[in-house]
């Protein structure tokens, strides 16, 4: 198996070729070892940080930004977003408060990424 990956570790953007033979992965084209680690991960199981918003009541805005506690498998992202849309928060919330554990069995939690106080006039 060969896979071409553009490395995103630094702004250089090396074109890394990831090759697999008998379960052993090797990379070429990367300028450093960080590119090797990134390239293999991206070839085997690409992961992304997930950021979105969820509904919130009683706060200054109608949405509260959220972030995953770590990278989540790329293929789970759309499913995770669906789950997030079923969540409705009530103010107040505090930064890094967990609002969803182990989303889609990914091993990753979802946290609110800011503090939102309760507003009185809503």
């Amino acid at each position: 198996m060969n896979k071409q990956v553009i490395c995103i570790v630094c702004p250089k953007g090396c074109k890394v070729l990831v090759s697999e033979e008998n379960g052993v992965y090797t990379t070429t084209g990367n300028a450093c070892n960080r590119g090797n680690i990134y390239g293999i991960q991206e070839a085997i199981e690409p992961k992304r940080m997930l950021t979105s918003t969820v509904k919130i009541n009683g706060a200054l805005h109608q949405r509260c930004p959220v972030v995953s506690s770590g990278p989540i498998k790329k293929e789970l992202i759309m499913e995770a977003l669906k789950v997030l849309e079923t969540i409705s928060l009530s103010a107040p919330v505090t930064i890094e408060q967990i609002i969803c554990h182990n989303i889609c069995d990914s091993g990753v939690d979802i946290l609110v990424s800011r503090t939102m106080g309760k507003t009185n006039d809503l």
């Binding site: 930004p65 972030v67 930064i95 990424s113 800011r114 503090t115």
Partner: peptide
């Protein structure tokens, strides 16, 4: 690697 609101929140706090 903070998100934008997290970065802001640290300063606001």
């Amino acid at each position: 690697e903070y998100t934008g609101p997290m970065y802001a929140q640290h300063h606001i706090d």
